[in-house]
Computed example of a mutant assay.
Amino acid sequence: MGLFDSLRSILGTSAEADATRAADPEDLFGMSTAYLTMEADLGFPSAGEAALCFSNVDSTDFASTVDEVEAILDAGQEETGTDHWRHSDDYGYHWFVLSDSDPEDLVTSVHFAADEFVERGYGSRLLAALFAFERGDAGEGEYVYWVYSFRRGAYYPFAPTGTSSRDSKQEFKLQSVLDGELAVEDDESYWYPLWPDRAGAHPWE
């Protein structure tokens, strides 16, 4: 299953029917303490990057919403130094990518961006928020992620080992340590892979 297939599943009929509740950006704040556990207990420090993935709507109002989200991130950048940029992938999905050495700033910025989508009536267009961590046991340039699914209102771990394979053992370890600290998706069929286009890259690159 490629990136397009996995995101299509998140947006698809089954995911829509099985959605547990509406998108709630407040859930993102769970990552504010989880990143400490990831580094202290598991040896996975924050990679200093996070991303918000969303699908487009062909309307001037939605375009205005996206511009407003970018304006909010611009304002936040002046206070926190969190860099950000927009990216559109080859599958037609859109990303706000954020970079900051302080993971708390990343969480706050992703929350502000997601909250604006919800406030403007476009919470249904939010797909996922990804928080990247360096995978020290696998060498430089390898990452694990905590993915927040807005459809399911829950997090799940994702540990890609290439463009089409994942380390399930590592994912279950992350689940066992962080379950309770994060609202972890207990149905593993919803742990959608978000494959990078090349080994060692992020899904949004």
Rank of each mutant, 00 (worst) to 15 (best):
I10K: 08
L11Y: 12
L11R: 15
G12E: 04
T13E: 15
E16Q: 14
A17Y: 13
D18F: 13
T20W: 10
R21V: 11
R21S: 15
A22R: 13
A23M: 06
P25F: 07
L28M: 12
F29S: 10
F29Q: 03
S32I: 07
T33E: 14
T37S: 12
M38A: 09
E39S: 15
A40I: 08
F44I: 05
P45L: 09
S46D: 07
E49G: 06
A50Y: 01
A50M: 08
A50N: 00
L52G: 01
S55H: 14
S55R: 14
N56A: 10
N56D: 15
V57R: 12
T60I: 10
F62I: 05
F62A: 08
A63C: 06
S64W: 12
V66S: 02
E68P: 07
E68S: 14
A71W: 09
A75K: 06
E78W: 03
T80I: 10
T80F: 02
T82C: 10
T82Y: 02
D83W: 12
D83K: 14
H84S: 07
W85T: 03
H87D: 02
S88V: 14
D89G: 05
D90P: 02
Y93Q: 04
W95D: 07
W95V: 10
S99D: 14
D100T: 08
S101L: 11
D102F: 07
E104M: 09
D105Q: 10
V107E: 01
S109I: 01
V110Y: 06
H111N: 09
A114R: 03
A114D: 04
E116Q: 12
E116Y: 00
V118P: 06
E119P: 03
R120Q: 15
G121L: 10
S124V: 05
S124P: 04
S124R: 06
R125H: 04
R125D: 06
L126M: 08
A128W: 04
A128H: 00
A132D: 11
F133C: 07
R135V: 00
G136C: 03
G136T: 13
D137E: 11
A138D: 06
A138L: 09
A138M: 11
G139K: 01
Y145C: 00
Y145G: 01
